[in-house]
């Protein structure tokens, strides 16, 4: 029964001019699960996230989220259904303050006229402060986002997704370019925010993966190569072959 899963991806295929970047992929993510996707370069990891959030359109197969078929939805409706996506490079509004970045992401007043009439009421402010606290940016609320450090930008983007309270959160390399202490904090952050929602994380840093993953999926050439807990995957001969072989 696919309903038990938050996300059910079945037979997902996308081909770019005949090249199958994702090839008959099946992926099941449970509620409250933190799934990490690993794989060598070009395995199709980012493409899978692009397909789920609607940035790329699937050639075939289905993506069901809480029983809703997402493959035909426009991007903004996928977001409104409860799927949040963080991009690989920090994707924030550099010219706006941290506060404004979070405010824009607040899920109210998303229509043209709604945004004209939007007021920063007490509940919005409270929520912004709460999220800022979670992402360690309480002190930087009025700083222009472009002036933040790389790690802080990554956190800000996570915060911009959290404020929408998505049921499924997809993070593409959240600790890329972070210092060791920032990685520590991010691991804590991810463990904390995985309560009550599902997370899909793409990551290369195996130490980091070990700290956060409930379950790991290894992609190779657009297909699932192995799946299971970290130890099982790391000792899987096929995985070792792909990472170290040739």
């Amino acid at each position: 029964m696919s309903y038990e899963f938050a996300l059910t991806v079945e037979d997902l295929t996308v081909s770019f001019d005949g090249f199958k970047a994702v090839d008959g992929l099946n992926l099941y993510v449970e509620k409250n699960e933190l799934r990490v996707i690993i794989g060598p370069n070009g395995a199709g990891k980012t493409t899978v996230l692009d397909l789920i959030c609607g940035k790329t359109r699937a050639t075939g197969g289905s993506i069901q989220f809480n029983g809703i078929e997402l493959t035909k939805f426009p991007e903004y409706k996928i977001v409104q259904a409860g799927v949040g996506r963080k991009f690989q490079t920090p994707s924030i509004y550099e010219n706006l303050s941290v506060l404004e970045n979070l405010e824009i992401s607040f899920p109210r007043g998303r229509s043209v006229f709604g945004s004209l009439m939007f007021k920063r009421t007490q509940d919005v402010t409270d929520r912004i402060l709460e999220i800022a606290e979670t992402i360690f940016l309480s002190e930087q609320l009025n700083v222009q986002a472009g002036l933040l450090s790389h790690g802080q930008k990554q956190w800000l983007e996570i915060g911009m997704l959290l404020i929408q309270d998505p049921e499924l959160l997809m993070l593409d390399e959240p600790v890329a370019g972070m210092s060791v202490s920032e990685r520590e904090k991010t691991a804590e952050l991810l463990n904390k925010i995985s309560q009550g929602r599902s997370l899909i994380v793409i990551e290369h840093d195996m130490e980091f993966v070990k700290r956060i993953a409930h379950k790991v999926t290894v992609l190779h050439q657009g297909k699932v190569l192995a799946e299971g807990n970290m130890d099982a995957v790391q000792n899987n001969p096929k995985v070792i072959e792909v990472y170290l072989g040739h």
Binding site: Y76, V79, E94, I104
Partner: peptide, 22 residues
């Protein structure tokens, strides 16, 4: 209004706005 800030945001990172549900 928030509309004005969204215009700035769209000039900056259109995809981020789109994937924030707009």
């Amino acid at each position: 209004s928030k509309f004005g800030r969204l215009l700035l945001a769209m000039r900056d990172k259109e995809d981020r706005v789109r994937f924030s549900g707009y």
